[in-house]
Design a protein around this nucleic acid. Structure first.
Lengths: 206, 206
DNA sequence: GGGGATCCACTGTTGGATCCAG
DNA sequence: CTGGATCCAACAGTGGATCCCC
């Protein structure tokens, strides 16, 4: 496997300019992300490869059209129980975003197979990014931890937002609130807003 | 008439909180602007009153709803012949915007008569504003001067934009291009974009 | 159910069209 | 035709819903 960031980035760069079709065929949501991981020698769905895990790198495809990021980016789930055990420093959001290999891929109207892979790049939040993410996370996590996640709209947060994530809107999970009462709620997770990732793209590619 | 800015502003402040209905009845586009001018002792449509002219003040109502500016602001016309005789320093845009009495007025869905007048304020562009306006004007004016105004979209410009202004889209004017040929084009004018006036409001009212 | 994301109806924005008085 | 602006269909943006694989 990979021994260094440079190796991973180099491998990712070798994908630049290729069409998704040349990586295999997965014409479904998430399919491109899986193909890219496989092309990088990773195994989608399993726990991170040892090398990638030790490097602390998260791989994310970033759908782009005409130079613009067209979708928000999934980060991780946000359940009351998980949040209760976290602080910003120990949070999964911070860990996952500490080092990200962003792989731009054509998106939007372009047929999946015809989408071209762009030039991947490694990213870490700078001080401003970190401050914004932290503020958002602490605000949102606090609400979720208090069992108020259900009442939080995706409008909240500057870089990070809370959104539902499930097969459909009938899916419920059960949690225990601070009073010890159990309650049901839709599964939710943290996403990076498009303007935030757009800013990252702009900073990298001018 | 008015002897000073302070007099004009004072008079304008006396309108704050009043409803448009109390100023008279002009239930048409532009009617509120005219009523406000009359209430200030000015005569809409005529050349500026001596006092106001000597003060170099332009009066503009600013339609606002929920704290947000909801329309762009007309500045002046933009014909090739007029532009050819101007430079930024001598431009009507710069002169008109050098000192503006902005009178916020409720707008949008509120019935015209029920619209309340807000607290007027005097504004002049700061150095940043001036630089932006100048950049926009020089860019747009250059195109108009070269007879290319017809091809300029309202998307151009950061604070200032070029837009059609006529009774309908059949109205044409005739101009002479640099080669001496006459050509027809829709009347156009300069407008202040909403985000720009919104910024002014935000700076004044926090 | 978690991990990879995209879809799309709705809503907010705005470019171009238009309105009235003098 | 100018000076006072507002209207509104079309577009862009995005919140909430959804999809597939493992």
């Amino acid at each position: 496997m990979f021994l260094s960031e440079a190796d991973l980035l180099s491998k990712a760069h070798s994908l630049a300019g290729r069409h998704v079709a040349s990586l295999g065929s997965r014409a479904h949501k998430g399919g491109v992300g899986e193909l890219v991981e496989i092309a990088l020698g990773l195994t989608p769905g399993s726990s991170p490869e040892p090398d990638v895990a030790s490097l602390g790198i998260e791989v994310k495809t970033l759908p782009v059209q005409n130079g613009k990021v067209i979708e928000s980016t999934w980060v991780c789930s946000a359940t009351p129980s998980s949040i209760l055990e976290e602080t910003w420093s120990t949070s999964r959001v911070r860990k996952k975003l500490a080092r990200v290999l962003f792989v731009p891929v054509e998106g939007g109207d372009v047929p999946v197979d015809a989408r071209r892979v762009g030039t991947a790049f490694l990213w870490s939040p700078n001080l401003d990014d970190e401050a914004i993410l932290r503020r958002d996370w602490e605000d949102l996590a606090d609400l979720v931890a208090h069992g108020l996640g259900f009442a939080v709209s995706a409008r909240r947060g500057t870089a990070l937002q809370l959104r539902p994530k499930a097969k459909d809107n009938t899916v419920r999970r059960t949690s225990i609130d601070v009073a010890g009462e159990s309650y049901e709620h839709a599964p939710q997770g943290f996403y990076l807003r498009r303007p935030f990732t757009q800013g990252i793209i702009a900073a990298v590619f001018g």
